[in-house]
Simulated assay, not measured.
Amino acid sequence: MAQTQQLGQQIGPFLAVDPAVDRMRAIRSARHPADGVAVFNRVYLTVTEEIGHAIAAGAFEDRRAAAALDARLAGRYLTAVDAVTAGAPVPACWRPLFRYRRHPGVRPLQFALAGLNAQVGHDLALAVVDACRDLECAPADLEDEFDRVGDVLVLLEERIREELLPGPEVLELADPLTHLLGCWSLDRARDGAWLAARSLWQLRGLPELAGEFTERLDRSVGLVGRMLLTPLTGP
């Protein structure tokens, strides 16, 4: 967990995404490619690299804000990975992915979208609040960066579905898989994350209420994640 804490200590005048990329590359090297966490990690590594390139190229009007949001978002995923390694409690939104990561009846596409669900449905809202505290601004000041990061995630979701959806050779899985994954939308999750971030910001002076709101958000996103990982074949 020290490495994730070290990443968090870099919150300052400008946030580089390089430490998060290095961590995710290390996770990719250490896990079997079929492991559900490795499947999501590969997807998220691609996202982080693309956002990093976009920040470096000046695609974001406020590079500092974009880097802060991206680093905070990555940090929450890496903290979950470290917690599992240490045997510590894991947020409910991430538990299904870690619990079912080796289940033979769960398809790679399900693993990838379950991870995105945890990140967008829960972690993104908290990352906005974290970044606002770091930058001493309000969520409205990060709305452009939030939208741009969300646009990258939407494009990535489309790529995930194209690359990981089973082909004709496993057609018997296609109908239930298509039905299952059609129940979740990244656009809706992103809209919910923005509303949750604004709500949490308004509740920042009421820590008990904010904590209850965050816990309920975590549990509800975890429930969706468990649904997305419904096994489609027997063990």
Rank of each mutant, 00 (worst) to 15 (best):
G115P: 05
R216A: 09
L206C: 01
G52L: 00
L15E: 14
I27T: 12
D130R: 02
E212L: 12
M227S: 10
G115D: 08
L116Y: 11
R107E: 15
G222D: 10
L223W: 13
L45Y: 04
V170H: 12
P19E: 03
P207V: 03
V170W: 07
D187N: 05
A86T: 12
V37K: 07
A125K: 11
Y44N: 03
E215D: 07
L223C: 10
V17Q: 03
G182C: 04
L171Q: 04
A197Y: 04
G58C: 11
F146S: 07
R204C: 03
A66H: 10
V84Y: 10
L155I: 01
R133T: 05
R204N: 09
H122E: 06
P176R: 08
G192Q: 12
V152Y: 12
P231R: 04
G36W: 00
E212V: 06
P235I: 02
A88K: 14
W194C: 04
E61N: 11
P104Y: 00
Q9C: 00
Q119D: 05
A59N: 08
A66Q: 00
A189N: 14
C93Y: 12
I160C: 06
S220V: 07
R219P: 03
A68L: 02
L209G: 00
Q3H: 15
L164K: 03
R42H: 12
S29L: 06
A26I: 09
Q119P: 02
L200Q: 09
A210C: 05
D151L: 07
L165T: 14
P13W: 14
L15P: 00
A71I: 08
G225E: 07
L181Y: 06
V221F: 04
D191C: 08
R159K: 15
E49G: 01
F111R: 11
D82K: 04
L113S: 02
E143H: 10
L78A: 11
E158T: 06
R99T: 15
A65F: 05
V37T: 13
P13H: 15
P139D: 02
T79Y: 06
E136A: 14
G52E: 14
F111D: 03
